[in-house]
């Protein structure tokens, strides 16, 4: 199923102190598709997601071995600038976390720190990003209002727009809908359909139905291991591994 890979991970091991949290992960993630990571809590799916933009670097006592290749270049190679890496690999978090500033400033934050000062250019980026996150029409009249005044679902789409504003190639989403109501959730799921036309999307979800709905490929993690990774349809209809089958049929979770 793999023609080219946007991200290739080889023999990745991650340790939190003595805790071996990810074991020999090998995976290839397709470009311009949605890849979902599923698995029970504590299986390492979120941790693995964070290795893809090196957010784990911020945690103390983390040791990472192996390679993560983004367009064939190892992002853990010495001399890699994480600020440039994270500009390419954007992230949306579990809890909507807009900055306590206006909607406009939230979106413009990324472009500004990367050196864009021109007002007209910023206006353009803000509008484009908000449209990209399907929230422009809802907020266009109150761009100067504090983003914290929006509903949780709107805040999360602001966060997606904020991530889009730095023109990433990959978008990592860490359980982006787990704090949202069903209507907001379905809006964001619809949005993923559009996002994958331009971006490589990787989503962590604890919700198997969500993976079925949005993901082209799905990876099942258990206790720090990648158990099975296939096209979503195949994974859910013909699981190859007993553990995958047990999980998706709800025998544990």
């Amino acid at each position: 199923m793999m023609e080219t890979a946007k991200i290739k991970v080889k023999k990745l091991n991650l340790y939190y102190g003595d805790n071996h949290a990810l074991k020999d992960i090998d995976i290839k993630i397709r470009p311009k598709a949605v890849t979902a990571f599923i698995g029970p809590s504590g299986c390492g799916k979120s941790t693995f997601l964070k290795t893809l933009n090196r957010m784990n670097d911020l945690v103390e006592n983390v040791k990472i071995e192996g390679e993560v290749l983004l367009d064939e270049k190892d992002i853990y190679a010495p001399g890699v600038d994480t600020t440039i890496l994270r500009k390419k690999v954007g992230m949306v978090f579990q809890q909507p976390n807009p900055f306590p500033m206006s909607i406009y400033d939230n979106i413009a934050y990324g472009p500004r720190i990367h050196g864009i000062k021109d007002k007209r250019k910023l206006d353009e980026i803000v509008e484009e990003s908000l449209r990209g996150a399907a929230i422009f029409d809802e907020v266009k009249d109150r761009l100067k209002k504090n983003a914290l005044g929006l509903s949780g679902g709107q805040q999360q789409r602001i966060c997606i727009a904020r991530a889009l504003a730095v023109c990433p190639e990959v978008l990592l989403m860490d359980e982006p809908t787990s704090a949202l109501d069903p209507i907001s959730t379905s809006k964001i799921e619809d949005l993923m359909e559009d996002l994958k036309k331009k971006y490589t999307v990787v989503i962590v979800t604890h919700n198997m139905q969500q993976a079925v709905r949005v993901a082209d490929d799905t990876a099942f993690f258990l206790l720090g291991e990648l158990i099975e990774f296939r096209e979503t349809k195949l994974l859910f209809s013909y699981p190859q591994d007993k553990r995958t089958e047990d999980y998706i049929t709800g025998r544990f979770g």
Binding site: N53, M55, L58, T82, T83, I84, L85, R86, K87, G90, M91, F93, Q95, N97, P98, F99, P100, Y109, G110, I113, H114, C159, R162, A163, V166
Partner: peptide
Amino acid sequence: VSANLRAASYALGAS
């Protein structure tokens, strides 16, 4: 200040 906000900033490539 929530660690979430800092993480959001780092994730956008801020130093």
